[in-house]
Design a protein around this nucleic acid. Structure first.
Lengths: 391, 391
DNA sequence: GGGGGTTCTTTTCTGCTGTCAATAAAAGAA
DNA sequence: TTCTTTTATTGACAGCAGAAAAGAACCCCC
């Protein structure tokens, strides 16, 4: 663990208080009794934990005149005051940095992105710092301090240590990113893997709210997966987890850059689709957008490629469901622009490969905009802020 | 949750006390200071929690004259007195019931099995009751009461409710097995899925001790898998989890009884191997043992079948490693009698399909005897006994 | 308009758990 | 014998959460 920069401390000094705040944060306005029930505590405990949070302005009482039952003392629900604190989330890709300014409820207030010339840590850090300063300037307008910075990077990231152990896209190894970013920005920094960050955002603010077991599958330039088991994001003993893209589902499939054959990523990721469309149609399509246009234009070869991709994704999700039986799988990523071309195949292949009741798993597509990844990074910063490491 | 039969209560009335006992149980004799360190508590807390456990006879002080450091007050390690309590574990298969009598440390004291004529719940319950009574008679010889009965059944089992929701092998649906068995035996009963029970045994007493993320893969009549993530056994939102046997790894593979193609179970389970050996050699082998003899005799066709099975298992384990990043995978099951015929292929296929650091996962084969499954059932009973549901 | 009923919230008190810091215990070393 | 070193125990203490009861705010009905 790294030492934490001072900043303003969050007034939740016990696990119970953190849990209560999180409950309110995720489940909107709740009466104290309702919070107590959900958190498994007594109403008295909630009252006591809520008071300092209201005094500090993180929670507010939210009297809803309309939806009030006619009987008994009117409920006095509390909700999180999103405007009480701001956070910045950055998603670093191979060629740009996407940044968002969010409030405490992780609603995006502003979003920006800058292209990235060189992938070296020094250049990236400079661009990131510039982007952060722009967003900090925006934040000034709200008159509220920025309480944390989250950075999402693909690859093997040690969140507790704030170190990027290995990122293939950026070609980074053992970069103490959190420390470096704290030096240049002066903010408390949380670094995490990008898919895991997105999963955190879904768990707290998206389609994973209230679920203890679910998966997020991202489709696009790569195929990724974040897992939540027993209510916690899975990180893997060696830093690798959720590598659904390298599930090998066909020994006769196309070769993958990982050295294996028939990986999902070698069938359904954007580069694989572009290559397959070229082969199928003979048209030298340049990128995923062009391949998509071709398929949307009705080209049967291109459409077949997307259908195969959908089947591969569906089978991969089936594997995930068979192994850990999630309650829901959230399918997202920029690749969903081709949603209409492979959604049916995903469902079909999933239904075929899911075993027994694993097939009851709820498949849900969520066309998340690209800032969503940066929002995930902000969500990790919010997490770190709420459970300050005093316990 | 079901109500619990009275019996003798275990004197650990707080989660911390349970945790302390479990630490001692799994990690052999430990000094109080060592326990405190491992459990993340103060030494004082350990002293206080240990006393009633010693008074009740579950823990004993274990002075080891030899391995004592020359300096300072001699340590006074405590260990679990295995002989303080006995447990019975039953594993119900399609054609027999295997029963073991174990002590509190889950060491097998006696083991028995009875054939099963009919798979109906009534007949099974009768045979099980007879077996339990035999084992109870054995237990009388030790002068210690039997404190719990664990029953392991394949299929979809709701442990908390004590209900077998669906077991394909036995063709059971919604059988309140725990309640029924409690009525006929008078013991507190814990019912769980068989692979999960085996996983519990490994987690507490086997190769999974001290690991928070590992998997158990069983090879034999079927291919199963138990997962431990974040230190807890994964059960799946809909009761299905660890269905590694129905990972589909080859769309051109042989058809599986689940309706899919190329499932691991359709390639590497005993029936699949027998069928494949028949096809490859033209020899009408009757069962797995005969197929194995043929392969051990050097028949190239049969050997090739085992090699393919090993590759399928290895790839499946690779999928598990890519998704969860376990620290270790324990390979077990009766199918390991063919260990020499496919161990290399398992390792090879695993190494090829594991992505990045997931390949660092420690693959370990453990040729567990068939009573091991029943021992797993006993382990679940021990679990239930230790954390009596008073909190 | 005053009581009774209902539901949510707060207060006070109490029990309990685990930590802290000091102390006792059991050796070998000087 | 006295000191040092390490382990175990004790008793005081703080803090958290639960129970129970009171309070608060509303409705409805007589």
């Amino acid at each position: 663990m790294r030492s934490i920069l001072p900043g303003e401390a969050f007034p939740a000094h016990t696990p119970a208080a953190s849990q209560i705040f999180t409950t309110v944060l995720c489940h909107g306005p709740l009466t104290r009794t309702e919070v107590a029930k959900r958190a498994g505590l007594s109403a008295a405990a909630v009252t006591k934990a809520v008071r300092p949070l209201i005094e500090a302005g993180y929670l507010v009482e939210d009297v809803d005149e309309e939806a009030r039952p006619s009987l008994g003392r009117p409920a006095n629900p509390v909700r999180v005051d999103g405007g009480r604190a701001l956070f910045i989330g950055l998603k670093i890709t191979g060629d740009e940095i996407i940044g968002v300014l969010t409030d405490l409820c992780c609603r995006i207030r502003t979003s920006r992105h800058v292209p990235l010339a060189a992938p070296g840590p020094r250049a990236v850090l400079e661009s990131a710092a510039a982007l952060v300063h722009e967003l900090l300037a925006e934040a000034d307008g709200f008159g509220v301090p920025v309480s944390g910075l989250g950075i999402a990077v693909s690859g093997d990231v040690d969140r507790a240590g704030g170190v990027v152990r290995y990122s293939p896209f950026l070609d980074w190894r053992d970069i103490p990113l959190a420390e470096l970013a704290e030096m240049t920005t002066g903010l408390p920094v949380t670094v995490d893997n990008d898919v895991r960050a997105l999963t955190v955002a879904e768990q707290w603010f998206g389609a994973g709210v209230g679920l203890s077991d679910f998966a997020v599958v991202t489709v696009g330039a790569g195929i990724g997966c974040g897992l939540v088991v027993h209510g916690r994001v899975v990180s893997g003993a060696y830093g690798v987890a959720g590598e659904i893209g390298h599930l090998s589902i066909d020994p006769a499939g196309p070769p993958c850059h990982c050295g294996n054959r028939g990986c999902v990523e070698a069938i359904a990721a954007d580069p694989a689709i572009v290559r397959a469309v070229r082969e199928a149609t003979g048209i030298p399509v340049a990128d995923a957008a062009e391949a998509l246009r071709l398929a949307h234009g009705g080209d049967p070869g291109a459409r077949e490629v997307y259908a195969r991709a959908g089947a591969a994704i569906g089978r991969a999700i089936g594997s995930v469901a068979n192994l850990f039986g999630p309650e829901r799988v959230i399918i997202s990523g920029e690749g969903l622009v081709a949603h209409d071309l492979f959604a049916d195949q995903i469902l079909e292949a999933f239904a075929a490969s899911a075993f027994g009741t694993a097939g009851q798993c709820d498949l849900r597509t969520r066309p998340l905009p690209f800032e969503e990844w940066a929002r995930g990074a902000a969500a990790t910063a919010i997490q770190s802020f709420i459970r300050s490491d005093t316990y």
